[in-house]
Design a binder for these strands. Structure first.
Lengths: 370, 370
DNA sequence: TTGTATGCGTTATCAC
DNA sequence: GTGATAACGCATACAA
């Protein structure tokens, strides 16, 4: 069935035989077991034999007896995200770097692709293939499985799923709603009143609704509504952002500013704007979200909210490593704030800055499209 | 040492006991062993017991006896690439999708980060943690280890390392030299004579030198030299592309066109150009390489060479799966051609198209900077 | 048709 | 100080 690879397969018995000792001694020496009183001479002989034979312990055998695999998995939604967006890749880099530094391998596991109805990552846990799990932006359907794992004490760190209410899940989130308020307020404070919003995905994701809420919050602070025709939804990619923006323009919209749910769709939206003969920021001001590496090099450089996925992934992984080591920090949840990075996609203030809720309607707004 | 996770740990013995049969029977039923004549009734009882207990076979035990792990690793250089560029992420998506479709988990393993002097991935093989390996753009120092694995018959597919001369290594490459010729020729055919080249990394990578050679080939076809001051080197990121371009501009260069080693640094270079008051394509024409998802949404949309990392990764993974199944296709190497995607970053022809080697020097070239 | 016995390569508990 | 021996959980040749 499974063809045995031809790679050398050296066992500890062979090392023992060559060194003239028992397998136990080999194990003691190789694992540096203290207080076993191994003579320096035997030690050297064993080490030499192991080196000479190129001995590497069999991982399966080792984990069968130890119960640990020195492997973790990073669970994400579609692998599609890897193709079109820069968020998950940076997250993966952080998880990888941190986990590797602690001697863990990392399995990359997108779950929706499996076609399961949720909990597609459970089998990895139950079959004991991994010692811990980091779940990134998993859809709501998996919340219940995440909760089960956590309640069983399995090392798990959840990122971006807003499971704050759960008292046994370790989680890290950014305050997306507040971040969206900040982003939208930035446009409002510049004098814009007709601000459009472009969601980056369907509302199956926690992040999408959170950002929409934040946008609405800020609009309300300025006594502004969020009209349907100024709200659009894309689907992760720049292409979808471009399509969504074209649709909004076709709907005969009137807006002078755009808050895009992420930078990638902001790129797409800006391209659509350009194609329609609209200039950024002169005609339309744009704020993105994420601060992907290319945001600073867009034309014009994109003003955006700086989520720091690499750093956040490092933090999540550090926590996971501690959980796998048996620690149980008292702090369950951490909520991070993200800064606004002002570049040039919003231009200069349209009118003198108008404080929220005291401005007289859209008086300070630009004339815009309509 | 290693704290046993509290997750349920059901063994086949427990299933056997609940079903009132032996462990062997459980194994036969669960693995669908044919010609064993298991009665339909027992079968149902076993399946029911397994489901009731939530039984999942222990992966370590299974792989210890079977010799297989149902896991592959994708070996890449720095994890840094995940942070700043879009090539490796798309590659990973392809490997992931294909391998998952065949029931394999995938370990993401950047090797240079380990600080080893090469062969950092060998231990995964020797410890039998993986059944196969895909090596992407590994540096030259690892060639020897790759060759060793291949000669031992270990399932291995190498991508982008140009190891064509090896008669036992399965490899997939794109003809980067030819691609670079095509890219450079495109600029030359548009009438440009002063064409600059920006490498995307140090020449530790096969791809960097290949692309430089291709650029020189094309220049030579037009009887043009490749002056040192028109050659720059970046380091993967858009930021480095921006820095490198600024340095080239500082050196008081004279060029009317740029061939950038990848799209990411092209973004950076274009930003530097813009900052210097130069317009693309009016003052400088730009061709990139890779066709990353954002290339089409750059301002102006970037003309580039379309490498298709996702598709290439799928092909490499398909091959790996076949190797792991024991197949040994006769075709060892495959070399792919990549198409030029013309968008708007090169504008229109500068003069009427001039055939190679017959043009009178730089007569058709634009005046440019100097 | 089902159960018994053995081995996979380690680690760990004991006597010696 | 060192060396047998028993798990770990599963698969399978073989016996019943």
């Amino acid at each position: 069935m499974s063809p045995k690879p031809a790679a050398t397969r050296v066992t500890s018995s062979q090392v023992a035989k060559l060194a003239g000792v028992s397998r136990t001694t080999v194990s003691f020496v190789l694992n540096d077991v203290p207080h076993m009183g191994i003579s320096e001479e035997t030690r050297e002989r064993v080490l030499g034999a192991a080196r000479q034979l190129g001995y590497v312990p069999n991982a399966a055998a080792r984990s069968l007896v130890s119960g640990a695999t020195r492997t973790v998995a990073i669970v994400t939604p579609h692998s599609e995200h890897l193709k079109v967006d820069a968020f998950i890749p940076r997250m993966l880099a952080g998880v990888n770097d941190t986990c590797h530094a602690h001697g863990y391998k990392v399995i990359f596991e997108p779950i929706i692709d499996t076609g399961r109805t949720g909990g597609g990552f459970i089998e990895m846990v139950d079959s004991r293939r991994v010692d811990g799990l980091i779940a990134i932006n998993t859809p709501r359907i998996d919340d219940v499985h995440l909760a089960r794992l956590a309640s069983e004490g399995f090392p798990l760190v959840v990122f971006g799923s807003q499971l704050i209410e759960h008292t046994n899940i370790y989680s890290i989130d950014v305050d997306m709603r507040e971040a969206s308020r900040v982003a939208t307020r930035h446009l409002l404070s510049l004098g814009h009143r007709k601000v459009a919003y472009l969601g980056f995905a369907s509302d199956e994701y926690h992040g999408v609704t959170e950002r929409l809420y934040g946008y609405r919050d800020a609009m309300r602070e300025y006594d502004l509504g969020s009209e349907f025709e100024r709200i659009g939804f894309a689907d992760f990619s720049a292409q979808s952002g471009c399509d969504a923006m074209e649709a909004m323009l076709d709907r005969g919209p009137s807006f002078t500013a755009l808050f895009a749910g992420n930078d990638t769709i902001a790129f797409g939206a800006m391209a659509a704007l350009r194609k329609a003969g609209l200039r950024v920021p002169d005609d339309i001001a744009v704020v993105g979200y994420d601060d992907i590496p290319l945001a600073a090099f867009a034309a014009p450089p994109l003003t955006t909210m700086r989520t720091s996925p690499y750093e956040q992934a490092c933090e999540a992984s550090d926590l996971l490593v501690r959980l796998m080591a048996g620690e149980r920090p008292v702090e369950l949840h951490s909520m991070m704030a993200v800064p606004l990075v002002v570049r040039q996609s919003c231009g200069s203030p349209v009118a003198s800055t108008i404080p929220p809720s005291t401005a007289a309607g859209g008086s300070g707004a630009k004339s815009g499209l309509a």
